[in-house]
């Protein structure tokens, strides 16, 4: 807070700082907003000024077989990849937190490495390796690849959550007569669920926005929404791109809100325990 007795230098600092940050946040935020109105443009250029209001580009998106197929593919691949990443990642996280063995640090590093290795290297490696196995141009290969890309997010968030988890609660439940399964679903899961879900959201976002590995692994039949957008931007940048972008912005806003809600909930639970 600016004190009433602040010196001119302090005042200048106070307002200058806020002005500067305002500009930087505008740089972050405005470009994303710029594309939204263009999706309602009546004519076929992705350019201002707009000539009128129209929903034709949403109609184009909804009726074009290529875009519909791409949306379908994204809705098949991303949830499956996320699910696979969440299940495998959560199991492994429990193991990593609870077990102790030599080489654990190395194994953790290996499991997190898909996040670090440049995507093009992953794409080329999987492409050359998957092709003889018949996994290129197949949903199976794509789901597997996307799951591997998502796993690090699940592992990092779930291990972080588990590290803060008090395993005495599990002992307490068992000593009060709950069977292991009940304990897991009634005690452990609700406590670590925010970690799993936020890890899953990261994994989902990664898969839902993945282009490079998809470029290498997918055939036209498996082209996902980002893959189709990539082709669109490169080939023929029409307002349909803006319509898809707008839909994706709405989606990312929803994901952001979910995550925020989870964070608040976790904060509340922590507060309750205190």
């Amino acid at each position: 807070m600016l004190q009433p007795y602040a010196s001119p230098v302090e005042r200048a600092w106070y307002y200058g700082m806020r002005g500067l940050v305002g500009l930087i946040l505008a740089f972050l935020f405005l470009p994303i907003l710029v594309i939204v109105p263009l999706s309602f443009n009546a004519d076929s250029f992705l350019m201002y000024p707009m000539s009128g209001f129209s929903l034709r580009w949403y109609e184009e998106f909804a009726t074009s077989p290529a875009w519909r197929q791409a949306l379908m593919n994204s809705l098949i691949v991303s949830p499956l990849a996320t699910l696979l990443a969440m299940v495998l990642g959560t199991l492994a996280s429990i193991g990593l937190v609870r077990a102790d063995f030599p080489g654990k640090a190395l194994l953790t590093a290996v499991l997190i490495s898909p996040m670090v290795v440049p995507v093009v290297v992953i794409g080329v490696a999987m492409y050359i390796f998957f092709a003889p196995l018949g996994l290129t141009g197949s949903y199976t290969g794509l789901v597997l690849a996307h799951a591997i890309l998502g796993v690090p997010f699940v592992v990092t968030t779930v291990t972080a959550t588990l590290q803060g988890f008090d395993f005495n609660l599990v002992r307490a439940a068992s000593s009060l007569g709950a069977n292991p399964l009940t304990t897991f679903f009634r005690v452990t899961l609700p406590m670590v669920a925010p970690g799993i879900i936020s890890g899953g959201l990261f994994a989902f976002a990664t898969s839902f926005d993945e282009v490079v590995v998809t470029l290498f692994l997918a055939s036209p039949e498996q082209a996902t929404l980002p893959r189709q957008m990539f082709a669109g931007i490169r080939e023929n940048i029409s307002p349909t791109i803006a319509a898809v972008a707008t839909i994706l912005i709405v989606l990312s806003t929803l994901m952001l809100m979910t995550l925020e809600w989870l964070r608040r909930r976790a904060e509340r639970m922590r507060g309750a325990r205190r």
């Binding site: 290529a66 492409y127 050359i128 092709a131 003889p132 196995l133 018949g134 290129t136 141009g137 197949s138 055939s219 036209p220 039949e221 082209a223 082709a231 080939e235």
Partner: peptide, 24 residues
């Protein structure tokens, strides 16, 4: 007919044919 596009690069064809898993 499922339509796809490319810019003439033959790598995918080669990989497909060598793998015996031709989807084009």
């Amino acid at each position: 007919v499922v339509a796809g596009e490319y810019n003439g690069e033959q790598a995918k064809v080669k990989a497909m044919v060598e793998a015996g898993n031709v989807t084009w």
